[in-house]
Structure formats: structure tokens, C-alpha cells
Design a protein around this nucleic acid. Sequence first.
DNA 1: CTGTTAGCGCGTTCAA
DNA 2: TTGAACGCGCTAACAG
Lengths: 306, 306
Amino acid sequence: MSDVAKAAGVSAATVSRALRGEPGVSEATRQHVSEVARRMKYAIARDASSLAGGRRYAIAVLTSEVSPVLAGAEGALRQAGYDVLLYVLAEPGARAKFFDELPLGRRVDGVLLLSMSLSGAEQAALESLEVPHIAVDDTDLRRALRTAVAHLLELGHRDVALVLSDGVDESYDEILASAGLDVRPEWTVWCSPTVDGGEQVVDVLLDGERLPTAVISSNGAAALGIYLRVQRDGRAVPDEVSIVSLDGQELTRVVGLTAVEGAAKEQGERAVADLLTLIRGGQIEPVEHPLRLVVRNSSGPVRTAG
Amino acid sequence: MSDVAKAAGVSAATVSRALRGEPGVSEATRQHVSEVARRMKYAIARDASSLAGGRRYAIAVLTSEVSPVLAGAEGALRQAGYDVLLYVLAEPGARAKFFDELPLGRRVDGVLLLSMSLSGAEQAALESLEVPHIAVDDTDLRRALRTAVAHLLELGHRDVALVLSDGVDESYDEILASAGLDVRPEWTVWCSPTVDGGEQVVDVLLDGERLPTAVISSNGAAALGIYLRVQRDGRAVPDEVSIVSLDGQELTRVVGLTAVEGAAKEQGERAVADLLTLIRGGQIEPVEHPLRLVVRNSSGPVRTAG
DNA sequence: CTGTTAGCGCGTTCAA
DNA sequence: TTGAACGCGCTAACAG
């Protein structure tokens, strides 16, 4: 840095201020210093910078799975000039160890949590770091369902079945009802969030006397199972049955299922933006995560009877 | 550190040496210092350590996609006490920028590359960092193919078609031939590495007079496409046609395709072990990446004719 | 707006 | 085997 300072005819402190965008430097000086630094291929040494008490230029990213959201977040952080310290906290052991040891002291400017629901203790541990943090929630099932229902209504569907993953125990009847659909108990079914689960549930669903013209699945893998099974049964998708997934797994994309996607990339970017705002001491206002209906080949107009 | 030194009745230099396992400290002193440090929950500050010329306790992980290998590598590195600096270099722009700016100077102890085939220039840029690096190769198609062929032979198949992804231009005839299979030119076909590609190739393949009893696909998505199309054509899998993928994408697992998998986790762990050996100045000996045949529901005994 | 001074917390001499 | 002094590259607080 002193080399750059000498070359630019200023002091090291000025170089520091100029390169970090700190106030207190004339615009002319800043430009000049930046130019010289670039020519000399100089970049601030982060270690020394953080040692001296400045920022650390690093964000810890905690995630329970390596997912597209991670890719989105990484890109946004990198672009903002931050390093990404990755912690994959998939196994309970690793997760417990992390929150026990909290190896983040004085090493990051912020923490980003992806698809992690924290326990109270974990939350408290995180707070004790005294570092800004923010979490990216999972897709909001409720809103996703409304989106899917609207899509199907538009296509003329009135007989819509809802396949929920085991573990989802809220009632969504009111959403179906308020959309003007009949709520038929036998058209709300549960299955495991797997391809197998989806296949099995089809037997139940298409066994009644009245068949739904469309099926919404809360889980992507199950949606795929439904799709495969329905086709194997000799029913055309979407001509006889439309299928919509509320979960934008890669699976749904690859086989061409219509899905409500969590807009993973945007969610990650949004979260990064919020986190950076927090780091700068700003206030953030909660916003709903964007949802995106991606219409592919598994949903179409309802077939007019007769 | 000076606090610990005081508490232990030694100098800071001794604490440093003791905690880093440096020689030149009596075993008694080392034990004592370690004990005191633990009691005081003291850990060496990595920033200061690297500033002063010591280790950086960090590894840069470069990857072209967020994949299970990444998860495996992260775990292994974490366990070895290293931070993971993640760089997702999926987009050409990001990748070019990285190799242009090389933002790694003096910041990591090593570099781990996952599923990245480096160009000569990139290779050179990496070397210029003067930091140990190691790459996890993609699955070796050749060996994977041998594994798949052996599996099918065992099941009695003799009429095996090979679907290669566009871009794969090596000849694998000798592998098929040496396994005692007839090499029929019309049974080696190319398609794009997508579900669509797989679907399309089925038309070509099952249009001849003599049909293969098994299909090997080098790509997982294409394998899925083949699977879907064959079923839709009303042919049973695996009773009429067996399908084996040489690529263990999640896709193949979820829909139950037999696949030769790269044993991602083990590969990642192995690479980390090698990298750490390099960092310590050791020599590594090349080993073949482990391959694993995962038999699922898409491969079965050949149906005895008539 | 800019320069000067004094550390940040450690590793590495060198001497004892 | 240990300790004291020095400097790594930078930023914060002050002075101008």
C-alpha cells in the first residue's frame, strides 16, 4: 500500500480511504489513487485490514443443503466484494458442533442462513455473536398454492386435488374454497415427499368415481411420481390430468412440470441485499419472497366434457 | 494471546509455538499452555496469524456447480480445521473474472477445484498463485462404461446400445468388443445431454429391425429421457429394455435408474486428504476415483426370447 | 481534505 | 528450551 501511496503522491491512509470508499477524500484524489492502484494490480490485504479493526469483507453462509439458493447468494456476495465462508450444516452433529463452538468470532461481517429453521438455543447463540444475520425462508406454501390455483382456474379447472407432503398439517381448504372450488375431502391426500409417494397416491386419487382434472402437489418429487404414474396408467398429461408442483426442484424443471418456484436466485440476492443493509447499519423492511409460476407441459386447459 | 501467556506463566512466543505444535517447546510446557488456552477459550486469531506469515487456515473451493461433492469436501475441510472460501464459477463471466483477478493472493493455503476442466491459461494462472491445488475430476467415462457393461453382461444382455452426449467424441467400441458384445454402428448414437435429447434418441434407437435389450447413457438427464420415452411407448423397463446411466445425477436416483455413480462424497474427501498432504509438503500418489454401481429398478435380466 | 502516529494480534528472528 | 524485540499491512484517532 505504501508503494501505491508513493506512486500516487499521497499517504497510505489516503490510499486506504480512497480504495474503501470512505468519505473524507476528494473525488479527484480518489480517482487518481484508484487508477494507480489498478495499474499496479494492488488490492487491499483483507487480513491486515480486519486485523487493524476494519471490516472483514467476509460473510458466513450457513446452509442445510447445497442448493441453487446458495449459488445465487454466492454470486451476489461476491459481487458486493465479500468472501463467502461456507458452512454446510446438514448433519445434526456438524450443526450442533457449529452452534456449540461458534467459530465465527471476529471473522465475518455477517451471517446468512439458507433453508435453516433455528431452534431457540441456536437463535440465541447466533445473537451472541453480535453480528448481523438474516435468514432465507422456504417457499411460502400458502402463497404458492394460491398462485397454482389461480393458474388452474384460468385454464378452466374446477375439480382440483391437493397432494400434501407428510408433515404438512395445516388446512388449505379455505384457499380452495375462496377460489370457488368445491372442497371434497377425498381430494386432499397426503403422501411422503418422494417419487414413490407420488406414485402411490395416484391410486387413491384416481380410484374414486369422480376424477379431478388437475392435481397440485406440494412436493416436487411427489409431483414427478404423480406424473409418471398417471402416464403409465395411460392417461394423458395435461390433456386428461394437469399437474402443478408447488416446489421448484430441479426435477420438475427437467421433466417439464409446471411449478411454482421460489425464485431461488432472487431470494438469495434479496437476502444478501438486506444483509448488507443491516451491516451498514440500515433498517430493512420485510418483503414477501417472490414466487414465480413457471408454466411447462404438465398443465393445460381442462378438457370439455363430452 | 498475551493473557494466556501471563496465565500460563510464559511468554506469548511460547504460547504461539505450543499451540501450533511447533518444535522447540518442552512437552510439559506445551501441555500446560494448551490446558490454559482451552480453559480461557482462547483460539489463535487467524487474521493476525496469516498477517504475521503463518498459515491461513483457509482453502478456496472453486466449483462450476453446487453439487454433493461440494458438501463432502466442505465437511472434510471443516473437520481438518480449515475454512472454506466458496467460489461458484458457473457463469463464464464470473469464471473469467476470477482467473483474471485471482483474488486469492496470500489468502488461502490451498485451492480445491470441483468439476472444473481448466484451460491452459487458467492452469497457468493457478500455478502463479504458488499455492497447492488439486482437482476432482469428473467421472471417468471409460471405467464407468466398463462397469455398466459388466453389469449388463451379468444380466445376460448381449444387444447393448450406447447413447453418448454431444461432445463426447471418443470411441468406446473396443470396450464393448472386448466384453464380447457385437459392435453395431447403429447402436452407438449421440444426443444432447438433456431429457429432451434422451427422448428423441429413443425414436432412432427403437426404430431398427433389431432392438437392443439394454441402453447405456453417458448422461443422467438423457437417461431419464430415454426412460420416460420408452415407457410412454408402452415398453416395460426393465423387462423389455434395461437402462443404465453412467452419470449419477440426482435425477437418476430419484426416479430409480440404475447408474454408475462417482461416489461424490468419497471423491471429495479423497481430494481434500490429498490437498492437505500437498500443503504439508508431502507427495501424493494418484489413485483412481472410486466408482460405484448402484442397481435400481431400470436394469434387469434380459428377457429370454420367445 | 490530508498526513502522522500508534497500534491491531500474531510469527519470527536473535540472544540468552 | 525460552523470552524480547521487531514487523507483517492495514486502519483509527488525531492533528493540521
